[in-house]
């Protein structure tokens, strides 16, 4: 049921020409996604999605739309080619899922590879009951260091992109 709602808001966000409505729909979509993560047992992910997707992304989107313009112009050509491309790719991908293990199967390859080790040993080795935190910070510490660096770089990049422009405009005026 949630999946259907998610799909509907996603399609609507792309369909609408009014970008403001699109951005709001994207926020609703993120909130629905967060609910879906809770249903699928991913509470940490739900937390992040609710804070980032529904809160921060919407605010940034609204600011960007406000700085550029809120209406998309009507299309000049019929989008048959992208539509066909998307449909063919989607069909091939669905064909690929036929071999995938059933949803929720405890014997799926993803479930028997490295996850049981984490679940059995994480608390004894790190003293942290939340396995997600211990895997994030300890077993995959390198990975997380990389992610933090990405976020840091993005922040710096935005400051340079938007702040540098302002300085140039000021020199133009003087």
């Amino acid at each position: 049921m949630l999946l259907v709602f998610v799909l509907a808001t996603g399609i609507a966000a792309v369909w609408l020409r009014n970008l403001l409505a699109s951005a709001m729909l994207l926020g609703i979509y993120s909130l629905l996604m967060a609910a879906l993560w809770v249903v699928l047992d991913a509470v940490d992910v739900a937390f992040t999605e609710a804070a980032v997707g529904a809160g921060l992304t919407t605010a940034l989107m609204l600011f960007a739309i406000w700085l550029t313009g809120r209406q998309e112009k009507p299309p000049v050509r019929k989008p048959w080619f992208p539509l066909a491309g998307a449909l063919i790719t989607g069909g091939l991908l669905i064909f690929g899922t036929i071999d995938m293990p059933k949803f929720g199967d405890p014997q799926a390859p993803a479930q028997v590879h490295v996850a049981p080790y984490y679940l059995e040993n994480a608390e004894a080795q790190t003293g942290v009951p939340n396995v997600v935190t211990s895997v994030l910070a300890s077993y995959r510490g390198f990975d997380t260091l990389g992610e933090v660096t990405v976020v840091f770089t993005a922040g710096m990049g935005v400051v340079v992109l938007l702040g540098g422009l302002r300085r140039r405009r000021r020199t133009d005026e003087t």
Partner: peptide, 23 residues
């Protein structure tokens, strides 16, 4: 390291927001 992550993420998000809002 979680404290490090928290500080870096909070500061980076605020940086992004302020540069958008300051425009």
């Amino acid at each position: 390291i979680e404290i490090g992550v928290g500080v870096a993420v909070a500061a980076a998000m605020l940086m992004i927001y302020f540069s958008f809002a300051g425009r």
